[in-house]
Design a protein around this nucleic acid. Sequence first.
DNA 1: GTCTATAAATAGATAGAC
DNA 2: GTCTATCTATTTATAGAC
Lengths: 189, 189
Amino acid sequence: MAWQEAHKEQSKNRILNSAAMLFTHYGFEKISIDQVMKNAELTRGAFYSHFRSKSDLYAQAISKGAKVASKRKPENCLQDMKDFAKYYLSTEHRDNNYEQGCPLAFLVSDINQQDHQVKKTYTKTLKAFIQQAQSLSTDREKTLQSVVLMIGGLALSRALDDEEFSDELLMACKAGVTSLSTQEGADVS
Amino acid sequence: MAWQEAHKEQSKNRILNSAAMLFTHYGFEKISIDQVMKNAELTRGAFYSHFRSKSDLYAQAISKGAKVASKRKPENCLQDMKDFAKYYLSTEHRDNNYEQGCPLAFLVSDINQQDHQVKKTYTKTLKAFIQQAQSLSTDREKTLQSVVLMIGGLALSRALDDEEFSDELLMACKAGVTSLSTQEGADVS
DNA sequence: GTCTATAAATAGATAGAC
DNA sequence: GTCTATCTATTTATAGAC
């Protein structure tokens, strides 16, 4: 790869990381292109050399953000759903103590308002997320239920003003995922 | 009540219904005060006689919207969770064929970005929703899991670009709620 | 209480220099 | 590719007439 291409790739990555962080922390509509670029240590004018529009950035940031969140999870998470849920439904994730939260949960109800490309990318990202969870399971229906308990539970817990209540909700969802994966061991047909 | 007060109350109700409808259909940030007022057949200037700010309207619209959604549900819904889930997780609700969708699901990931009053109202509204579900159940943890499957499942299904996949997700959540309420009958301790 | 008019700020996107 | 400067549109909120 030529020097110029490598430099461009590097800039684009800085913009994407900046966007994924800011969008998950503050929401897509609340963040301007100017803020994204300043955080990436660039200026507004340079933006359009990398993306066609703010919406184009959104789609790519969702994909990127989910990959980063995926790499962050603990090593033993791939062993069973229970460990994965413990990480995903942690208070640290809810309170966004990581650099980026999972876009699937943090932005879920915003996606319906966006254009085709954003919805398409979100759908693809959720499918990959389910695929990953499915590898720890045999029953697709139970996998879907676990995924909804995780993404939905995290999203709901973030909307609440009552920490004790929010904690209770996270715990109930973790217990739900555990229960679903335990049922699999003793499958009844 | 004097005529003037009754008139004011009527105007405020028109604004609230307009806002609850537009916010759930198009999102809070995408809708301007001007659009809310035009839909309520009033002009922008009149808005501030009823609400202190757009955020104030948001909080009250969430509360109002949840009440309207609650009144809409079929008669037999109060009998068991299964019937309630069938209504809540229907494709009609997902596709927003009603005048207003349930704000708890339609706006869930937007709430975290709003001010204290909005989060407070959302929390109170969710608690009332759970209270209603709790009356059909004995196990609080299972009630919370069912509520997350419903609100989270509906929110997720709305973000998807793939109708078949979205339908599958709704079905899995309905099955999850059914399974949870069936487990209650044969409680194992 | 409702209207018209306007203030004041911010946003997405483009133009042109280097 | 990145910069500064600017265009154009939209927004929340306020002022003052009726």
